[in-house]
Amino acid sequence: MTDLRYAGFAREAHGVSPAYETLARSVANDAPLLALIDTLPEAKRQPNLLFGAVRLLGGPVAPWADFRAFVTEHWDAVAREMRARITQTNEAGRCAVLLPLLAALPQPLALLEVGASAGLCLYPDRYSYRYGGAPLGSGVPVLDCDSDLLPAGLPTVVWRAGIDLNPLDVRSPEDLAWLDALIWPEHAHRRDRLRAAAAIVAADPPLLVRGDLVEALPALASTAPADATLVVFHTSVLYLVPPEPRAAFVSLVRSLPGHWISNESPEVLPPPGPIARHRPGTTTCCRWTGGRSPGHVVTVRA
């Protein structure tokens, strides 16, 4: 199974990260290295977790022989990092997809992110954007989005909170280094974006709660200001959640007042309504209203 996981990751990395495509394919065909990885719990065998741990420890991503030698010689340290950490990529660029819906809701907003990592996606009002080249806002980072869902303006956010199994603090050099290590090697623009977004968050940290997405959500949602529109949202999180608790979360979030925005693969969370395709192969979007929580669901496929 581990070999298939890495082979599948190689296909995902094709055309996006040549370094990771090569590493994943090579790991998939290396029986001794697979045997080492298989000593870890199944949930800790992810390619992103292995590659991020190696980079965090200062190891090489190329050439393959150097990567393999580093992992073999430093396996105890690599395994220790993989056991202790989870993949927590915090991509502020996802705010560009969320913004059109956030801007269309009754203002001001109380944002509650599930799977918040370090909370970088809780600051959509602080970033700048370009939608098809049209600018919105000023300052850095500037988030680009190839979409015709143009927001009317920036939202007004008066409360920000998040839930994560292991919340990160961008004021911590160690936590920031882990977020950096999770960015794929060739993506220098994302690394620059991380630093710029982290500076904004560090100056005004959000409320981040350590906990399970089902168990912690009701209590945290109840602390949102009553005079603001509650928006529960998540981006690329539910694929990590097994089907039963995922279904429990969906049922729970639909029972809350306010709005729910989901940025997930349709395979993970099928859209409950028709999909309007805005740009073939890049973005799909749907809106949904129903249950006790009239809201919007947006599903994005990269």
Rank of each mutant, 00 (worst) to 15 (best):
249 F>Y: 07
70 F>K: 04
104 A>F: 14
85 R>P: 00
264 E>Q: 09
66 D>M: 08
104 A>E: 06
96 A>C: 00
166 N>P: 01
155 P>S: 08
27 V>W: 08
144 D>I: 15
126 R>C: 04
85 R>F: 12
166 N>F: 08
104 A>N: 02
155 P>M: 15
3 D>P: 07
190 R>C: 07
158 V>Y: 14
212 D>M: 10
210 R>K: 09
119 G>M: 00
198 A>M: 08
139 G>M: 06
15 G>T: 04
128 S>E: 06
284 T>L: 04
64 W>R: 09
27 V>R: 00
161 A>R: 05
187 H>R: 12
130 R>H: 06
262 S>K: 11
120 L>Q: 06
206 P>A: 02
87 T>E: 10
183 I>L: 10
87 T>N: 05
104 A>S: 10
222 S>L: 14
15 G>D: 12
233 F>T: 03
89 T>F: 14
278 H>L: 08
89 T>A: 11
156 T>C: 12
40 L>S: 00
46 Q>E: 07
175 D>V: 00
114 V>I: 14
181 A>V: 00
144 D>W: 03
298 V>T: 10
13 A>F: 13
225 P>K: 07
289 T>G: 08
11 R>M: 09
246 R>I: 13
160 R>L: 01
74 H>K: 10
182 L>E: 15
24 A>N: 01
103 A>S: 05
283 T>Q: 09
226 A>E: 13
255 S>D: 07
145 C>S: 08
274 P>R: 15
80 R>Q: 11
297 V>Y: 02
183 I>M: 09
202 A>Y: 03
142 V>P: 14
226 A>P: 04
173 P>C: 09
263 N>C: 11
71 V>G: 01
206 P>R: 12
103 A>K: 06
186 E>D: 02
133 G>D: 04
215 E>G: 12
46 Q>M: 06
52 G>V: 01
24 A>L: 11
